[in-house]
Design a protein around this nucleic acid. Sequence first.
DNA 1: ATATTGAATTTTGAATGCAAAATACAATGG
DNA 2: CCATTGTATTTTGCATTCAAAATTCAATAT
Lengths: 256, 256
Amino acid sequence: MENLGVVHENLDQKVYLIIKNKIIERQLLPGEKIPQDKLARELGISRTPLVSALKYLEKEKLVEAKPRRGFFVRLFTIQEMVSIFELREVLEGLAARRAALNITDTQIAKLKDFSKAFQISKSFPDVGSYAKVDRGFHNFVTEIGAKEFLKNILQTYNIISFSYQVVSSEGLVRPPAETIDEHLAIIDAIGRRDPASAEELMRQHFRHSIATLKNEIENGTQKRAANVEHIQFGKSTTPSDELRTPKTPNVLSTKP
Amino acid sequence: MENLGVVHENLDQKVYLIIKNKIIERQLLPGEKIPQDKLARELGISRTPLVSALKYLEKEKLVEAKPRRGFFVRLFTIQEMVSIFELREVLEGLAARRAALNITDTQIAKLKDFSKAFQISKSFPDVGSYAKVDRGFHNFVTEIGAKEFLKNILQTYNIISFSYQVVSSEGLVRPPAETIDEHLAIIDAIGRRDPASAEELMRQHFRHSIATLKNEIENGTQKRAANVEHIQFGKSTTPSDELRTPKTPNVLSTKP
DNA sequence: ATATTGAATTTTGAATGCAAAATACAATGG
DNA sequence: CCATTGTATTTTGCATTCAAAATTCAATAT
């Protein structure tokens, strides 16, 4: 008999999500060593699934493993951020193309919501809420345009870039005034189901940000530390969704 | 005192490479369950570093973890191969662009070697040796154009696609006659240090292969099983390295 | 024969144990 | 005072252990 849809999740998967959140919510700071014993005791588990989770995070580049010395929350230089944005340029370009090809009418309605939210940001400038819509939008494109392999990769690198505090506040590379219209153009292309334009506009969008980053390197405006603030996880990609900051996860028990 | 360049490598990293090779060399077959106890005993280690290595491979999609049931060598459908080729289209496009920007004169000399090798394949057709040059070429572009993040991702997906036995023999999607000139054009663009052309030509190259794959899906020519043969690892990316064809029997043929 | 049940066996996931390495810290000498 | 050495403590990497789950396989019923 088959186990229809019954998903067994191992401890390490839960721990993986918890640590990921700890990093994103800055309970674990970039460069900091991850205290295995303390964390394991805190979660009421042994080091085995904890180390396992850390190895997952290592593959995702969120932590760095130094053999015989432990795991450290990863730091990114601005040069590395440029590389990551170059990756995102082509990957989200692909996601935008696929989104334009696959989008359903219901999803187009959600796109319109984003459009509205961006328009509002235009009239009532507020960097904080704009940054949220920005993240939500990129996550939404990933959600509808990417699956399997592409989605996995993009989610990782989106988290890294959103969590890197660059230049202005809220982790934005450029001010809203510069990016709102670019977002609107991308939304329009996807909504029109025009894959070629969607891809090209998304890539342009990133190229502009990359140019800004490179400019900062030249001007020595470099911020050295990675930083995180208010990252949204899970499915909350619609602008209408929650805007509160996520709660801290509850402690685990080995029991169901 | 600092440990200058002394790299400690944990057991799981070594085991990771060993299993990866076992998969690539078909000592572990797609769909097969990985026998932890047997393998651990074989390698003279405990299950701890073995499982750790398997988790790495899971993140790389080379194995699949089914909780409470074990690890299995991953199978790829032709549809998944299309997704992977779409990824490679944009990623190797980026790598080609970066290659054109960064290439040194020494590396251009190596490119010319590839050019020569492809020319030879034109005059003396041999699918086996051509496939090798093909792989070597794509690895070389990855080597010079990609670093850090991009390189990691590409290496994984290149391995997967080279190891998937599609259509014709030797893991090639299309026959040499179709692809030689495309390769030559890419080489030319990179050698001319023309990033825009290099990227576009590389992408076209992949788009053609994707079209072929999609065509197969429609025609039901689908091969069900992944397959591997003669994958080269490490630095052996130069065409001067090895051009001989140590033929091994094609073990596939699940044909009725 | 085939299907079903249930006990025996194997395998997994996670805790625990332990030697070696790394780190912290105290004592000593410059 | 700071640098250096030696010692105690902590942490890491891996092996071992063990309960629970999955699998195998034989006995029984259909």
